[in-house]
Design a protein around this nucleic acid. Structure first.
Lengths: 199, 199
DNA sequence: ACACTTGTTGAACATCGTTCCAGAGGTTAA
DNA sequence: TTAACCTCTGGAACGATGTTCAACAAGTGT
């Protein structure tokens, strides 16, 4: 049966697939992204996706890398409008929480994707993950002149924001407090910075 | 075909199911827990599980509540051996991270279980979630006399530890730092406490 | 003795990711 | 030109999932 259409190059097809996955995950989360739905959305058979992009894991990694880049751009925009020092840190905190709030479906696709055991993460994915972290590292520079301490603090604050956002999105934060996520995130970062002399 | 065996009461059957789920999830994570495997493990047909316990969501909630109770007991044990004040807080931090490390499969079953849309969480589950939080709240009492501030701080630090543990278990922490999770968790809590006068 | 409820089973349904098979068409080599 | 080959393509098939259905056995109540 199969005929060669060649209406799209492999790269075009990959972009179509990730576009469709992005649209679905943005509305319904990763759970709504299935091979057959993607195939139907782009007008191809499931098998063509395996040819052009790879299996489900490859598609999710592609989508998540794109989401990370969108967040990086959003954070950079906010950083450009803010000043230095504490203002830059606040801009990152607000930018992060706002992005998670606006793109809850895409963001939860990153954090609660339980990856099957397929070797280490690709280098391009680790790079996409490192870009927003570099922004945090830069904003923390005035507060932590020691490079080691700054690297640790970047990890701590990044993970802390991740935790607050994660519990907030899944509603588990409401058990202990009625506060919104953003004030809690601000509190975490402000007090960590204020206590930075402690070990 | 169907014969009445009545070898176990409904409660016994439920315990058998959660036991089996706990054993599997402890070894392989939630992904290995399937209805047919549970049924085979306890020697019943899948449909009997639906009769005795309910659907997959009910089983996972039961299992997660049990895991939360195990963690609560573990934290209480550590608290009993530690002193008051900063020592109690340190005991909680170490206890939390140690529990996550020792029971990675069960713990990740709690945090990255994407619950389907089945109304609000049952009251007994929220209660199981509130018990460890009460321990944190108690340990923070000497540092935050104001009840509102203490509640917020409990949420912030709980979420922060959750974030660090979550990224550590999934390996994403290694992108930014080579440090172990425990020192980072200690750093987060110590500096938050040291900076508690800040807003 | 008859109806009813409860437990139980194996089969069935819809869906999932993935793979297999066959075929259509362009490209390359003789 | 013709033959071989490789690359897409689509549809069916495989194994597995959660869940539901239909039938039936065995107590229980009347």
């Amino acid at each position: 049966m199969g005929a060669r259409r060649q209406e799209h190059t492999r790269d075009e097809l990959e972009a179509l697939v990730v576009d469709a996955a992005e649209a679905i995950a943005g509305r319904e989360g990763l759970g709504g992204v299935t091979m057959r739905r993607l195939a139907a959305a782009i007008g191809y058979a499931p098998n063509s996706i395996y040819h052009a992009v790879g299996d489900m894991d490859a598609i999710v990694l592609r989508l998540n890398a794109r989401t990370l880049d969108r967040m990086t751009r959003s954070l950079k925009r906010r950083l450009a409008e803010a000043g230095d020092g504490a203002a830059a840190v606040d801009a990152l905190v607000e930018g992060y929480m706002a992005f998670v709030h606006r793109n809850a479906g895409l963001w939860s696709g990153i954090v609660d994707y339980a990856r099957p055991d397929k070797g280490p993460l690709p280098a391009w994915y680790e790079a996409a993950l490192a870009r927003p972290l570099a922004l945090v590292d830069g904003a923390l520079a005035p507060f932590f002149p020691d490079a080691d301490d700054r690297r640790r603090s970047t990890a701590v604050l990044w993970a802390g924001l991740h935790g607050i956002a994660s519990l907030a999105v899944s509603g588990k934060l409401g058990v202990v407090t009625g506060d919104d996520a953003l004030p809690l995130a601000r509190l975490l970062v402000h007090r960590y910075l204020a206590g930075r002399e402690a070990a």
